[in-house]
Amino acid sequence: MSIHIHHISKTFGSFHALKNVDLEVKTGELVALLGPSGSGKTTLLRIIAGLEFADAGEGSIQFHGTDVTNRSAYERKAGFVFQNYALFNHMTVAENIAFGLRVMKRPERPDREDIEKSVTELLRRIALEGYGSRFPSQLSGGQKQRVALARALAVGPQVLLLDEPFGALDAKVRKTLRKWLRQFHEETKVTTLFVTHDQDEAFELADRVVVLHEGDIQQIGSPQQLREHPKNEFVADFLDCVMI
């Protein structure tokens, strides 16, 4: 499923967090949203998911051609992985993963055995077999992150939005998870938009990279394009700075 973001602006009081953003993520694409802290990455992701609403006006958001601008988060059902995991602390790992399936409406909801089966399958996939009955507080950061990912994937979302999925982890775990995500995307081809402020991560993972600065999109292009033809000083500077 593709995502079309058209003329989206967002102000908090008098502060312009996003300025007239246009962006298209094609079906099956893996796009990285790169930018310094405070550039509006999280805000954009939250607007796509329906957790925040853009300023009223001409702006619109389309999921695969359908206008979802005024739809609520639970209607959009974009898989979202939060910067700080946001796991349900009072539920076990298995219950966390099953949540999205259990809240489905009657006709679509799988029966109990099927839910159990999907949970087991997902646990295997994130290499946490046997962790189903643990609580989030008994997991490491990297494990929590994978559970959050599995929870989002359980409902088979058409769109995956990841907010600095590996932000809080150490370099080694980051590398492993990065590889894992790349591989996962190769297998499933879910349209994915992920936020990072780590240039290496963006370049290694993404088909295309979007550079955001102060709520403005500076450049969109493949890692190679960005490296070879930075559009303006900011992009050149930002990419260089991070390289050091």
């Binding site: 329906g50 639970y74 059902k77 979202f80 946001a86 349900f88 999205g100 989002a152 409902v155």
Partner: peptide, 20 residues
């Protein structure tokens, strides 16, 4: 944050309140 996570997983307001 947990409520927001519940919403993106398709929970309506009622389910979010009771379960989360």
């Amino acid at each position: 944050a947990e409520e927001e996570a519940a919403m993106t997983l398709g929970a309506n307001g009622w389910q979010m309140f009771w379960r989360v």
